[in-house]
Computed example of a mutant assay.
Amino acid sequence: MKTTLLKKTFMALALVVCTTSFAQIDYTFDTDDEGFSVTGPGSSSSHSATTGVLTATTGSGGSNLQLRKSANDIGNPTTLTTVLLDFKNNSNANSLVLQTVSGGVTTIETIAITAADIAEQSYQIDVPAGSTTWIGSFQLRLRFVNTAGNLDGGSIEVNRIQIVDPSTLSIEENTLSAFNLYPNPVKNILNISTNNTISNVAVYDLLGKEVISSNTVKNTLDVSTLSNGVYVIKLTSNKGVATKRFVKE
């Protein structure tokens, strides 16, 4: 009786794990490049992943910079149809192309991005309904280009790439996710750029321990007492709650 009950319990837990594991795909680059490679025409291309940031660089004269991940399984193609990206663009790239490769290169969607950013920006790419190539396992490609010519040899600092179900994104989260942090990495004073009214800010280490909390936030936060490393900042405002990561150096 006990054995049967334990088996049923383990089977239920396994089902929960399998079900929730595909609710969202999250690449955070905390320890490595998450299987992404970097390529593109030009004199050279390289990438490195440290303290939660994937930095991709291409030599000047290249027409594009590509982030590639092979055997990328997005799970249920009918629900995981939104790609969220947080990155700082230190180059003259002004367009980002989402592509898949499975028997041929297929462009899914193209969005405009800002060039020569002074702070990290957040972007969202929605996969068009009925896209037959957004299915199962394929090579995922993110291609950065300058629509007027070649790239200038700058870098792209990618903080996070997520593939999510758009129904899980609330209006408040979308509105507040536009806030920016700079400088990032930061030594002493972290600036918070947002049009919303901040009522509370909290900072957590990667173990989930709250290390800073304040209800009297303007648009700056003193992080000089923190040890070097990666942290998560949580903002509460009149538009809702949102989080982002930053690096203390």
Rank of each mutant, 00 (worst) to 15 (best):
T3W: 06
T4I: 05
L5W: 06
L6Y: 09
A12H: 06
L13W: 11
L13R: 03
A14F: 15
A14V: 10
L15T: 04
V16F: 12
V17T: 11
V17W: 10
T19Y: 13
S21L: 09
F22Y: 13
A23K: 11
D26E: 12
D30F: 08
T31Y: 15
D33C: 04
F36R: 00
S37F: 09
V38R: 00
T39D: 13
S45K: 04
S46R: 09
S46G: 11
H47L: 11
T50F: 10
T50L: 09
G52S: 10
L54K: 01
T55F: 12
T55Q: 12
G59I: 06
S60R: 06
S60F: 04
S60C: 07
S60Q: 15
N64A: 12
Q66R: 07
Q66D: 15
K69A: 05
K69H: 05
S70Y: 09
A71V: 08
N72M: 07
D73V: 01
I74F: 03
P77Q: 10
T78R: 07
T79W: 05
V83N: 09
V83W: 08
L85C: 08
K88D: 00
N90A: 10
N92S: 05
N94F: 05
N94L: 01
S95N: 09
L98E: 05
T100K: 02
S102W: 07
S102A: 10
G103Y: 07
G104Q: 14
G104T: 13
I108C: 11
I108K: 01
E109S: 07
T110L: 03
I113Y: 01
T114A: 12
D117G: 11
I118R: 07
A119S: 06
E120V: 11
Q121F: 13
Q124L: 14
I125R: 02
A129C: 04
G130Y: 02
S131Y: 07
T133F: 04
W134S: 00
S137F: 09
F138Y: 15
Q139D: 15
Q139S: 14
L140N: 00
F144T: 02
F144S: 01
V145G: 06
N146D: 14
T147G: 08
A148L: 04
N150Q: 10
L151K: 00
D152R: 05
G153D: 03
S155H: 01
I156D: 00
E157V: 06
E157H: 06
V158I: 15
N159V: 03
I161E: 00
I161V: 12
Q162M: 14
Q162G: 08
V164N: 13
D165G: 03
P166C: 01
P166M: 01
T168F: 04
L169R: 06
S170F: 14
S170I: 13
N174T: 12
T175V: 14
F179W: 00
N184Y: 12
K187T: 15
N188L: 09
N196Y: 05
N196D: 15
I198N: 02
N200R: 13
V203R: 05
V203S: 03
E210D: 06
N215A: 14
V217W: 03
K218R: 09
N219M: 07
T220Y: 13
T220W: 04
L226Q: 04
N228F: 11
N228P: 14
Y231W: 04
Y231L: 02
V232H: 03
V232R: 02
K234W: 05
L235E: 02
T236V: 12
K239G: 06
G240D: 06
V241W: 07
T243I: 10
K244N: 13
